[in-house]
Amino acid sequence: MSLALAVGLQALTGVAMLLIISLGLAVIFGMMRVINLAHGEFLMLGGYSAILAVRHGVNIWVAMLVVAPLIVGLLGALVERLVIRRLYGRMVDTMLATWGLSLALIGVVSMIFGNTVGGFSAPLGSVDVGGFYTSAYSLFLVPAASVMVGAVWLVLRRTKFGLLARGTMQNPEMASALGVATERVYAVTFAAGAALSGLAGGLIAPLSGVVPTMGTAYIAKAFITVITGGAAMLAGTLSASVLLGAVGVLATFLTTPVLGEVVLLAVAIILVRLLPHGITGRFFRRAL
């Protein structure tokens, strides 16, 4: 019973982790149809921002939850203004530009920090779950992911900006014909997606450590989650995270971590084959 509880909590943590690393990408791709290949590097910059802030005496929670999203959100606004804004509607060009950006960011960060693992200790210590000790901080990721998803839902459903963003993404020409400054909506949406990626980087920094190339370890999983989820940005990312996260953790528990990853990818491939429009192409169609 206690083992089942421990595995269940681990599965929850795995789901939360997938949600956290995918949400920023889901906002940028799901809302704007921009394939941001620098998403992994936004995560990495969030991690480094948190590390630098902690080294300069900032409280660890403030560093992870405020400094990391703020810095990466500002960078996202700059990237949107200088690069992405000129490439809307040109998907391949956007991919090339963001790929180049990701390589440049890896290079710059490697020059500044070196190619070594940085990080800081996870707060909260460990907890006893039926005789099994697990990191309390890992469990913290579950409410953190829930709050992130809830906050995005609230902004999109309950605020003026959310309404303008949803309409603008459906038909930008009509939105501007009704009085919306669409460039501003795009800029804020991209910056918000980047800030979510930065927050994710800050949150995972104590668990995984931070290296300049860490983005490559996360971007594939994030893309697989978002694509498997389908068109409904939040419902898709949430359902894909639950399915893939739980399957990955259970497969890891029953076999090995490497086989667990293989099973996760195999399930994603089968899902995309069976549901070409993703999970929300068949289920939860009207969800956000």
């Binding site: 309404l163 949803r166 038909n171 009704l178 009207r286």
Partner: peptide, 25 residues
């Protein structure tokens, strides 16, 4: 502007389509 083809936001409700025009200005 009322465009040819109407260009209603398809996944927004009627209430949200109207509110969109209100908050856009």
């Amino acid at each position: 502007y009322v465009p040819q083809g109407r260009m209603i936001f398809p996944s927004l409700s009627v209430r949200e389509n109207l509110r969109f025009a209100l908050v856009a200005k």
